[in-house]
Amino acid sequence: MAYSDKVVDHYNNPRNVGSLPKDDPNVGTGLVGAPECGDVMKLQMKINPETQVIEEAKFKTFGCGSAIASSSLATEWVKGKTVSEALSIKNTDIVRELSLPPVKIHCSVLAEDAIKAAIRNWKTKHGVEAAAEEKVAH
């Protein structure tokens, strides 16, 4: 399979690889996928509780080149964004940016899931209920 230049670039130079202290109250961790499926993504964000700005993002991924690129790109995109801005990132945006072929769309879905899971984890730590968040969003 031929990879797009952007996938190759993220694979060769993955951005924001690493881990943040998962017990830090300001760090949200998302772990999605399964080893049997060949993809596991861990995405972590350090979020400022005052401004809701994502100040830091780190990832580690077990998966194909497209999965690595999708999660690497996700960390790039969420950094500096607010929580609600990050939640508006769609997997289709990742597909477009990386020119993923149809068989690799699941990689982008997983990256979107990872963003959501990390934010959910952060919210849980801060006692923010999903329902309350709904109101804020409206």
């Binding site: 993955p14 690889v17 881990s19 772990l31 999605v32 996928g33 399964a34 080893p35 049997e36 499926c37 596991v40 993504m41 861990k42 580690k60 991924t61 077990f62 690595i68 699941h106």
Partner: peptide, 22 residues
Amino acid sequence: LSPLYEMAKEGIDISKMKWQTA
């Protein structure tokens, strides 16, 4: 780059984890 390797090094048994599968 692998979260699984990191977990294994921390002593977590990956086979016993509950994974969110599709």
